[in-house]
């Protein structure tokens, strides 16, 4: 039992931190511009493909360094020449625009790299196990992912709290109009935030590619989870996004580790469920099967009881 708990904790943490890398940019963009960037997960995928191609010519390290930068640049350009043009027509066209970009990215990736999974592999130095815990190996690469994610979190936190640009970004998140009236170049701030946000998603993609697989379906479903992180954590709150990411990571990992179903709980109470029992399908569904559903349930519950999210300050 203990081994399961410790191992699930570690794995949940790694997955949660990866989610945070993805969602941190999204939450900044969303709270600042009021636009849910549906293409965010697409940039995550694009970076994994870039990192793969770069790694073929220049090695793994250049791959994870350059791919996020390129993707961040593309993100900035999409904001400057796409989203900003659409902005004047209101939020719905903006949303539809990012929806279109998401589709475009997925098709472009398949067009260039094909539909099969790519052999994007870890470098030799990160291959192998760091330590063995109750007979299970903990890979060096997972520790690498953990460290990178934590470093990014600390950097983001410091930049936002203790620098001038951070101050302006925080102000723009809360009160964009006021910041504009104070003479700051709000469109530029938007563009930079969008670029940095997509670059963070890119970094997540580049380091996740070798372990979670680099294939056209790698981003599917992630968009929804990221949305949950943003809503659950609260608008404009990096801290909230952090907590929400870790929670989702842990819950999803633990849900798979536990094998129980409602029928088992009922059995404890002395009620035996058989195939003839009313709604047998619901009682017999096991935790691992429900696992993907839990984050969305969390979001619904949060919206009912605390619409501002865990640490959010405003509602819209």
């Amino acid at each position: 039992m203990l081994e399961t708990v410790i191992f699930s904790l570690l794995n949940g943490l790694v997955y949660g931190l990866l989610l945070f890398l993805l969602a941190s940019g999204l939450t900044l963009i969303f709270s600042m511009m009021g636009v849910l960037n549906l293409a965010h997960a697409g940039f995550y995928m694009l970076a994994a493909y870039f990192a793969y191609t770069i790694s073929l010519y220049m090695g793994f390290w250049f791959g994870i360094l350059l791919a996020p930068l390129i993707v961040g640049l593309i993100g900035g350009l999409v904001e400057r020449y796409g989203l900003r043009q659409v902005h004047q027509f209101g939020h719905v066209p903006e949303l539809i625009f990012t929806f279109g970009v998401a589709f475009l990215l997925e098709e472009v990736v398949q067009f260039i790299w094909g539909r099969d999974q790519l052999a994007y592999n870890k470098p030799e130095i990160l291959e192998g196990a760091l330590f063995t815990l109750f007979g299970a190996d903990f890979p060096i690469y997972k520790m690498f992912m953990l460290i990178v994610s934590v470093l990014i979190f600390i950097t983001l936190f410091l930049v936002l709290k203790h620098t001038r640009i951070g101050l302006i970004i925080r102000a723009a998140v809360g009160h964009p109009q006021v910041v504009g009236m104070l003479g700051h170049n709000v469109p530029l701030i938007f563009m930079v935030t969008f670029g940095v946000g997509t670059a963070l998603a890119g970094l997540a993609g580049a380091i996740a590619g070798p372990v979670l697989g680099t294939y056209p379906g790698m981003a599917s479903g992630l968009g929804g989870i990221m949305f949950v992180v943003v809503i659950f954590g609260g608008l404009g709150s990096l801290g909230g996004a952090f907590i929400a990411s870790i929670m989702i990571g842990l819950i999803q990992t633990f849900a798979i580790a536990i094998d129980g179903s409602l029928a088992d709980v009922l059995a404890l109470a002395g009620i035996i469920v058989t195939e003839e029992t009313f709604m047998y399908d619901i009682w017999s569904t096991t935790m691992p099967q429900v696992a993907p559903l839990i984050p969305y349930l969390m979001m619904v519950v949060m919206l009912i009881f605390r619409p501002t999210g865990l640490m959010g300050a405003r509602e819209s």
């Binding site: 399961t4 191992f7 794995n11 979670l212 790698m218 479903g221 798979i256 580790a257």
Partner: peptide, 21 residues
Amino acid sequence: DQLHPIGKVKDFTPYAQKILR
């Protein structure tokens, strides 16, 4: 005897851990 959502699992480590256990 485990079923997992098709094409949705990003990280199989929790399943691998179950197999190990």
